[in-house]
């Protein structure tokens, strides 16, 4: 399993996610500058990390979605390659139209950083196969624009095809307004593409990948991806 982590100017979780994947899985992780036009040969997983790409002075992720490297990243995703966007990376994925919807400013209108409980809605994806169904996990969030939005008919379609992978929940697993930190529709924290190979989520699994940081739920996330490949899963990217 070979992972490439794209670094845009203004990315700031690139080093964190590189460490988390390397240390949890002990597999090769390659930093990839945004001006590159091709992925390293044999890349199985591409990660778009969190941060403030290009300062996010325009809509978050809008500039990064037009970076030179994105052509290869989009091609990788469209061919079925595993593609993961965390926080700003999720915003880049929606701006690239690889995932539906948009991430609007939080309903509080301020940046929000805190631990968050999530309910895992799908355990049959390459990213979540090692969680138990409906498992409650704790990943922190840290964003100013994380309110997932989709128009009602598209939202219905997303829900109908079981595209929601993570929802903000209470510690006991209820999906309620009280558990929703940013006003996302249907408490949506993470969604997956129709092909099941492109995942975007606002919470940060790389921040809970070591016990010293207060949690290890993120390790299950990384191990799911490794397990997908070890069980013969194919990333059909370039």
């Amino acid at each position: 399993m070979k992972t490439a982590v794209v670094i845009f100017p203004g990315s700031n979780c690139d080093r964190d996610v590189i460490c988390a994947v390397r240390e949890t899985l002990g597999r090769e992780v390659i930093p990839l500058w945004h001006r590159e036009t091709a992925l390293p040969a044999g890349t199985d997983l591409v990660i778009l990390p969190g941060g403030f790409s290009f300062g996010d002075y325009l809509r978050s992720g809008a500039m990064a979605a037009r970076s030179p490297v994105m052509e290869a990243v989009v091609a990788h995703g469209k061919k079925g390659g595993l593609l993961l966007g965390i926080c700003n990376g999720f915003q880049v994925l929606t701006e690239s139209r690889l995932l539906p919807g948009a991430l609007l400013p939080n309903d509080s209108l301020v940046f929000h950083c805190s631990p968050c409980h999530l309910r895992v809605e799908r355990t049959d994806t390459p990213f979540t196969n090692s969680f138990t169904p409906r498992q409650i996990v704790q990943f922190p969030i840290a964003h100013g624009e994380g309110r997932y939005f989709l128009f009602p008919d598209e939202l219905r379609a997303l829900e109908d095809r079981l595209g929601v992978v993570f929802r903000y929940s209470t510690p006991s697993g209820e999906i309620s307004g009280e558990a929703n930190p940013n006003g996302s529709v249907n408490n949506i924290a993470g969604i997956i593409s129709e092909g099941g190979n492109i995942l975007g989520l606002m919470p940060h699994p790389e921040r809970v990948s070591e016990s010293i940081l207060g949690g290890e739920d993120g390790r299950i996330f990384w191990k799911s991806i490794l397990s997908f490949f070890e069980k013969g899963g194919k990333s059909n990217g370039l």
Binding site: N12, C13, R15, D16, C19, A20, G50, V110, F111, H112, C113, S114, P140, A142, H204, E206, R207, S209, E210, I212, L213, G214
Partner: peptide, 14 residues
Amino acid sequence: IYRQYDSMVQTNTV
């Protein structure tokens, strides 16, 4: 106040 601050980036915060 501190909810408005990213206190965890760089993943060193114990």
